[in-house]
Design a protein around this nucleic acid. Structure first.
Lengths: 200, 200, 200, 200
DNA sequence: GATGAATGAGGGTTCATTCAT
DNA sequence: GATGAATGAACCCTCATTCAT
């Protein structure tokens, strides 16, 4: 007997799944309740309003659902990495590889994040995570004299763009791995300490 | 009697100005003809349809107008720079400084670019420009072993994010200059050739 | 639980009825959703769009509804007639008599057919029916040396005009019967075989 | 020095010509001032409102213009015919032949007549002409025991339908002549006196 | 006389949400 | 709980007409 997450309970999960598919395929702007209801096989949009407090609530549920899925894929690889540099690399590479595993979710999440509005907690969360990572890594000597906030901002946005482009293009696994490595290389070079001899 | 530019004829320019303000303040999604007409002091939306072939036409005019303004600010500084690295730095720094001069236009352009659709010529144009710059710079020995496409994608997106955040926060000129330099430093470090001694 | 026909579900039927009345009274060109909604006692046009896929869908439903009504009146009389000539006469006379029973529907149908567009199936259907009737009747010796296509075209149009005029004038039943007989006489004379002695 | 007709004076004629073309090609419903102005090479619809009292005025001018053209083609052939029957035949045949000479005008006129409204003088004029023709012809023994009003109604409508179909199909001259003869035959047979030996 | 910018009502349609059943 | 009909505002756009220049 385990806890029921909020996307369980059948109907809610069904609607969230449908919404994710619609956002990925038709885009955020076209993701109306009508379209989502049709995708979910529901006869009316009232069903959605019944299960969710409003559109924001549904979209927030989508974000949470997608983050669970992406987290399950990325987190183990990030956790397996040792040191600030390796973790940065693991985050970037696993995020790009993710496109091959969950293209629909990735596409939807990118659209959701672009049109963030009030659901931006997760965006700021990741941004804060990166910023903190650069700051502590800098203190540990892993990173050079960078501005943590600016770097976090530029890197997360750059990563999103690469991922979004790959998702839209339907890039294959091998090429994704190559692109991920290239991007990670770029970020590692950009943040490398000036002196040789990395302490970590 | 001279040729009429697209934003001339008074009303057209007035509407484009209003549209830019609305997009900057209310966001792309909320930029309806009603809102734009109200901002422009027009009594009806019919006026907008009278001067523009459709919403796409108006938005394209906004993009063109903004690009003229931003180009007038950035281009001289980019042209004054010598060498691939200096030009990259000039582009980044002048783009961030631009926020202090034209915050509304910058905010609007970023929103317009995000919801590009068919008006994406300018987006792809800049992307292609960056990619080509990295490729030729690489051949000239100014840049290291980077993947031109991935780097162009990540850097333009990162730059946009930094600019957008600064624009939204109302960052002051001095801080903008500092952030611009930090970001340029980051990009220069990321793309530096491995060996010492830059040919250019 | 039985299948739902297209005009069932109350509201749909109500809207179709209102649309027929509006078309009959104000004409096809003026039959806007606003007018129809007002006629139906609805507070907004959105209700119509909710029940019909679009204006074409509503108009098609009107045509179908009217054809059911007219068919129920005319078909028994046509079926009761024996021989090509008698059937032609029955069609014409019952169609003119129909004006007395369902003037609104007749007026609406004629306007709908005039502005057919894509809903012209019923028009072409009747035309083809007439043409085929003349062709087979000719082979059976019931009709003379006529051009089936031209005759079908001229007769259906002539019948419509007579019906439309009678409907507009509010002609009474007795006069309708007389006019119908006159028109049928005209058509029968026009198509009579040259030789005496009708085989059928 | 001759009298100036109302469609002369250059601009008026130009607009009427454009309107006729638009009605013929795009249909009555799509014949807006914008479309007509564009067809006429005018930069604004104001020009049309300046020269015509309103849309009805313009459309009436179109009808008059077209009737002048069609009259010039048909009238000589009708006048050349001797006797009621021959004149009926001449009217029908020359009207169908007219499609080959002035397809645009014919198409436009048919659309104008269908959506007659207040411009129906010409329609009623022709109808009255036919009715009178049948009545006098009947008195002269040229026609049989027909109802003049019903026959006039059915025949003019039938003729219009044949003409409209031929115009829409782009039927060639030879086929037009054949169809015209078939239709005239039909009408002549329908109206023939019962006894043999025509007095006229 | 001629122009074209401006008007404002109305077009069909989509939308998120509500509520009686 | 679950449903789907109903709502009414807002969307972009087209229209015939007017009026200052």
């Amino acid at each position: 007997m385990r806890a029921r997450t909020f996307t369980e309970s059948g109907r809610r999960a069904q609607i969230v799944r449908a919404a994710i598919v619609v956002i990925a395929e038709a885009g955020y702007a076209k993701a109306s309740f009508s379209r989502i209801a049709k995708q979910a096989g529901l006869s009316s949009t009232g069903m959605i309003s019944y299960h969710f407090a409003g559109k924001d609530d549904l979209l927030a549920a989508c974000v949470t659902e997608i983050e669970e899925i992406t987290g399950a894929f990325m987190q183990p690889r990030i956790d397996a990495a040792v040191g600030h540099v390796a973790q940065l690399r693991a985050y970037v590479e696993s995020n790009v590889d993710l496109v091959g595993e969950h293209p629909t979710e990735v596409r939807a999440l990118i659209d959701l994040v672009k049109n963030a509005g009030s659901r931006s907690e997760s965006v700021y969360g990741r941004l804060a995570l990166f910023e903190e990572h650069f700051r502590t890594g800098q203190a540990a000597g892993a990173f050079g004299p960078l501005d943590a906030r600016t770097t976090a901002l530029a890197f997360t946005a750059g990563l999103d763009a690469v991922v979004a482009t790959a998702a839209a293009a339907g890039t294959g696994p091998a090429e994704l791995t190559r692109i991920g490595r290239e991007l990670a290389d770029l970020y590692v070079r950009a943040t490398a300490p000036e002196t040789t001899g990395e302490p970590e």
